[in-house]
């Protein structure tokens, strides 16, 4: 007998090592991403630094989101619905740039992560006569 798949996740395409920020992630991550969006304002960044737990309360973060933020666990934030464009704003407060985020997610030391990018070593230029 053929299996009938009814849940929305059944047919989802999986791209190895690559979170696809879709409607499910957007719903799950709304509180965390809303908090990160608020960090566009310097006063909100300062308020978070002054009282992380209290600030997370204001955005009703879920327990996995709180734990991931507490632990500076970037893969945990992504798994809890965080979108990297928004998480980058939190990362800035923590003194991390996107290369640091890459290292934390791949498990590579930062110098190895940067070296892997530099290893491509491609420069190609063309100018029409």
């Amino acid at each position: 007998m053929l299996m009938t798949r009814t849940d929305s996740t059944a047919a989802r395409r999986v791209i190895p090592g690559t979170p696809v920020f879709d409607g499910d992630a957007a719903q799950k991550g709304l509180g965390l991403n809303a908090m990160c969006y608020s960090f566009n304002q310097a006063a909100n960044r300062a308020a978070f630094v002054a009282d992380e737990a209290g600030y997370m309360d204001r955005f009703a973060l879920t327990d996995p989101q709180r734990e991931a933020v507490r632990q500076r666990d970037v893969p945990g934030m992504i798994a809890a619905g965080g979108n990297v464009y928004y998480l980058a704003k939190l990362a800035g407060i923590l003194g991390l740039n996107v290369q640091d985020l890459g290292a934390l997610q791949t498990g590579l030391p930062i110098e190895e992560f940067k070296a892997a990018l530099l290893a491509h070593g491609v420069t190609e230029r063309s100018v029409a006569p």
């Binding site: 690559t18 979170p19 992504i78 990297v84 464009y85 996107v98 985020l101 997610q105 791949t106 990018l117």
Partner: peptide, 10 residues
């Protein structure tokens, strides 16, 4: 790619 275990993909 900025996110996931494949971050750094080119």
């Amino acid at each position: 790619q900025l996110d996931g275990e494949r971050a750094g993909h080119i």
